[in-house]
Design a protein around this nucleic acid. Structure first.
Lengths: 259, 259
DNA sequence: GAGTGGTCTAGACCACCCC
DNA sequence: GGGTGGTCTAGACCACTCG
């Protein structure tokens, strides 16, 4: 029978319980950071077995409402305000402003930004990267792999690849901090005037590797963004792969209607 | 013990089995359309209980590798080729070509396009829509809700909203087929010259409503695209909400680097 | 009816966290 | 240690599909 709100709606019991909990969270009865009733508590409260109680909270997890810590319990997630990534961030004027894009974005969201450099150095271009960079597969390219944080939690992992013949002459590209305006400013200073970026957006479920790196729950969706930077001379001088927790980001694009 | 490939890697048994199956699918041992071993078959093959066999195939489902039909079994999905949505599709020249965007896109992917109109008519603008259209909440607006198919399977649900004072003078907007170039062509013919579109991309897990409408498995990610169309006169003449199965689409955007 | 997936139970054991 | 989630079993019953 269950003590609370167990309208017998033909729904499986575990879904009823999951809905109950979801409603309590959305209604604010269970506030962010608070502990969700434990499995044994749910077992007695709804008089079900452990398996059913488990399925209920398992149902809740992929919705992003809760977070489960082995040995501690499940907790209501504090939904962090969504961060916006605008296509405007690539305007030359923004670049000249000096601040790297992610710092401005994060501070604007009222969060403390952070970056960890995971790797900067040469790698052999995998087939897909080579093709996008328009260099032969297996060629040496410069890779810059960073992990971005917001208030201490990782939100975004990005890897840039640059052709070695271009990168080798720009020492800042090998630094953890490439200086004001980021690597695009350095490229332009060195004669590679940018004409256009092409971004490609995909969404999919996180791989195990990604759930680890971004500390996501399994089954969480991610946004996979790939970008190519093309110069006035028609050369691709950088490609970038970015994985973002989908619930953390919104991407904005302005598209002129002309022609 | 298990009869097949049961490397004892500390991994839970159900994950080992899931990996086994996934590998067989990727290696082509199990081909698209073929039936995945049933639960009872897995029980004997790996000598586990039903619960464990279930968990194994449940693990496979959200990866998009299989599809489960109650009472029939699970089957290897045939991965439909990804469809591209390019920001170029809004160029005026493309509009004049006459074919509606989705038909061209779908045919290019070698699929048979299809549309069903779910609703065309007046609705009261919900708060969010009203804000985006820059009209008072509750105002009457024209809604156009369509479901798009590719080879008979629904892939995309889109709803356009237009201010009533603009829509009422353009009879084609009330037709199922608004004619060559779509509604944007009709708007421009009627003096609403478009300047710019702003698209906003989100990704998240499908709601139950969406899994139904797009016949997705629960836990599938979707791309939520919202678009606003602004005229030279600075007026928002349309906003559009689109839900797409994430595994079916890739979005492309070109971003000029200038200024 | 035989075969399939979907739900549920009762009880067991393990791994992790914290006092 | 006691509390928590994570895995697994054995057996039951139901709902759906197909011949």
């Amino acid at each position: 029978m269950g003590t609370t709100a167990s309208r017998d709606s033909g729904q499986p019991r575990y879904l009823q319980i999951a809905d109950d909990l979801a409603q309590q969270i959305r209604a604010g009865v269970l506030k962010p950071g608070e502990k969700v009733p434990s499995e044994s508590e749910l077992m007695t409260r709804y008089s079900v077995s452990q398996g059913t109680a488990r399925k209920a909270v398992a149902e809740l997890r992929p919705t992003g409402l809760i977070d489960t810590l082995h040995g501690k319990g499940s907790f209501v997630k504090s939904q962090p305000p969504v961060r916006r990534k605008s296509s405007d961030r690539f305007r030359r004027s923004h670049r000249r402003a000096g601040k790297a894009a992610y710092i401005a974005e994060t501070e604007q969201a009222g969060k403390k930004p952070g970056v960890t450099v995971l790797y900067i150095g040469p790698v052999e271009a995998a087939d897909e990267i080579a093709e996008r960079l328009d260099v032969p597969a297996g060629t040496k390219v410069l890779a810059r792999r960073r992990l971005y944080f917001s208030d201490g939690t990782p939100t975004e992992e990005a890897t840039s690849y640059l052709p070695w013949d271009i990168a080798k002459d720009i020492p800042e590209l090998f630094e953890e901090n490439p200086g004001g305006g980021g690597i695009y400013a350095r490229l332009e200073e060195n004669g590679h005037v940018l004409k256009e970026f092409v971004e490609t957006v995909r969404a999919r479920l996180a791989t195990k590797q990604e759930t680890g790196a971004l500390s996501l729950s399994p089954g969480s969706p991610v946004i996979h963004l790939t970008r190519s930077a093309e110069t006035e001379a028609g050369r691709i001088v950088e490609v970038c792969d970015t994985i973002m927790a989908a619930d953390q980001f919104v991407l904005d694009y302005r598209i002129p209607a002309g022609d």
